[in-house]
Structures are given as C-alpha cells and as structure tokens.
Write a protein that binds this DNA or RNA. Structure first.
Lengths: 156, 156
DNA sequence: TTGTGTGGTTGCATCATAAAACCATTTGTC
DNA sequence: GACAAATGGTTTTATGATGCAACCACACAA
C-alpha cells in the first residue's frame, strides 16, 4: 500500500488532528469560513485554487464534521458551507499559526494584517499555555501522561 | 507550472506558516524533537516513515530555520537535529492541535495521552485568546486590521 | 427561450510520496 | 588492524495527489 499515510488510527491527538487539517488547503478554507465565506465560488475566488480540489476539500471537511452544508441564506436554491462548532473550535490553531509567523517569519514586513480585539482595535495577546493554577508553562514544564481509563496504543 | 501551490509570497501569516509546517510530517517531526529526539534513526523508527521523505523533511525544516544540525552530543561523528527558538516557538500550535482533538475527536477514547503540568501532574489549561486587558475573545470578537507601516498586498 | 452565472465533474499532465534496494561512513568486536 | 554491523542517508520505481483546462447540469434573469 503506497497510500499517503493515514494517521486515522494513531493514538496521538496531534496526528489525529492532522488527519483532518493537515493538508495544504483545509486550514485556509476554514480561515475564510471564519471570515464569513460560505459559497463555493467565493472560496474559489478568494483562495485562487482549482475547483476540483476545492470540491474535494469541502467534501472532506464536511465528512470530518468541520463544515456542514445548509440551504442558502439568501433564499436561492444553492447551498452553503457553514462551520460547525468543531470547525469554529480550530480558531486557536489558526491564531497560533498566525502568531508564530508574526514572531518568527523571516520577512515580517510582508505580513499584511494583524489580529485585533474588535471592541478596542488593539492587538490580541499572545496565546499562552498555563497550568491549572495559572503558572505559565514552557514545553519543558510539561510532560505526557497516559490517559487514565481505557486502552491505549503506541504513545505520542 | 503545476507545482504544488506555494504560499511563500502570500501576505497572510497563516498561509506563510503553512509553507513551512503545512505538510503531513513536519509537525510530527517537531513534536518528536520537542520530546528530545535528535537523531535521524530515532525520528525514523518513532514515526515509522520512509527514510527518503524523512531526509527531505529534515532538510526543509533546516532550510526554514526550524531545526539546526549540530555535532552529536555523545561525541560520535554523527550529527544531530536540534530545534531552534523558531522551532520551539511552534509549541502553541501543537498544543492547539492536541486540544482540538481532545475536545472534538469522534473517538476520544483512542487518544492515548494527556498533556500535564510536569510539576503538579495535572492537565494543562485550555489555550485562550485574550485581549490586552484580559477579556476572553471568541472569533467573532476579533477582526483583522492592515498592518500599520509598510507595503502590503492582497489581505488575509 | 435564450443567455449567463453558479457549482460542480472529468481527463490529462505533472509532482510528491512511499517502499525497497542500494551505498558510504562510522562504530563496535576481536 | 580486519571484519561485521549499525547509522545515515540516496536512488529507483510505482502509485497517489495536485493543478489546469475543458466540459456539463442546473438555477436564474431577460
């Protein structure tokens, strides 16, 4: 089987998330959806991607429960693609990617936009990982534990 | 040119980050590196991936400044791949992906591990996006503004 | 009813990925 | 130092994914 490796059965949650989000277009489609894009043609023109692979990605995202199809809100017979709660739940992933570019990109001057708090118009804070008691955690301050209850596999 | 679309010149920081991280293996390699993996063979056996594409990915990650090669720490003549600060900076991305799976995966019982605070052994808090003044922000509470100073392009 | 825009699917060429075989260098063993 | 084995790759070949263009069905407007 030469098939492009699937992480579907993997026990690592990062691998599992990449199964749904880990290709070149899915996160960008979700980004547009978070901005309110809903129609096929709108995705296609904003992202400048081929229609066949857009169709394939939308189908995949619907299958993964990230998007759902709905009758068009404007009364036409066409359908729309709207984010599910699972889809909106990717927001921190997108923010983390954005902030990583803002901090480490070699040409930050080429970045066009900044994410701001709508109410105040001020840049948002950096995402921080904290312990239950509020302490700031670096990678070295964390570790993995096997999940309490049922079966598990390799690790990760 | 049929080339697999590059987002290198894109002005959206999410697209730019995907240029370096957006394939199937890079984030998993970084995940292993954060756990202390440094040697080619160790990556290969832990990830179970083909050696040729591991070599290609490592090369790409080094080119992007995410990994750096260094002489082996054990005195042997082999080299090691170690994370740069830019590489360690992807930690929030990995945490966000992990937490997304933990919250939305269809089979959460198949997830083997939980991320805990090393000091207390307790699960970490969810990543939260906050405004400068500490208010919790949902996607709808945010918006994009053009970057203050120099030139910009499409938007994103 | 004719025309146009929307939302796709189908073919075809090209690229990336995967598995296995192969190879050079380093290391351990005698 | 000679030899075998481990390490760290590259090359070869097969197949799947991607990208472009052409095509097509349906909705909608005149």
């Amino acid at each position: 089987m030469v098939r492009r490796t699937s992480f579907d059965g993997d026990s690592c949650p990062i691998a599992r998330s990449l199964e749904a989000l880990g290709d070149w277009w899915s996160l960008l489609i979700i980004r547009e959806a978070l901005f309110g894009v809903r129609r096929f043609g709108e995705f296609q023109s904003k992202l400048g991607m081929a229609k066949n692979i857009l169709a394939a990605r939308l189908r995949s995202l619907v299958e993964h429960g990230i998007l759902a199809t709905a009758p068009a809100s404007d009364g036409s017979a066409y359908q729309e693609y709207v984010l599910t709660p699972k889809g909106r739940g990717t927001f921190p992933v997108l923010v983390a990617l954005r902030q990583w570019s803002e901090e480490f990109d070699d040409h930050p001057d080429e970045i066009a936009t900044i994410l701001v708090d709508r109410a105040k118009g001020r840049p948002v804070k950096k995402l921080e990982l904290r312990a239950e008691d509020g302490r700031l955690l670096s990678p070295a301050d964390t570790t993995l534990k096997p999940r309490p209850a049922p079966r598990r596999r390799a690790a990760g």
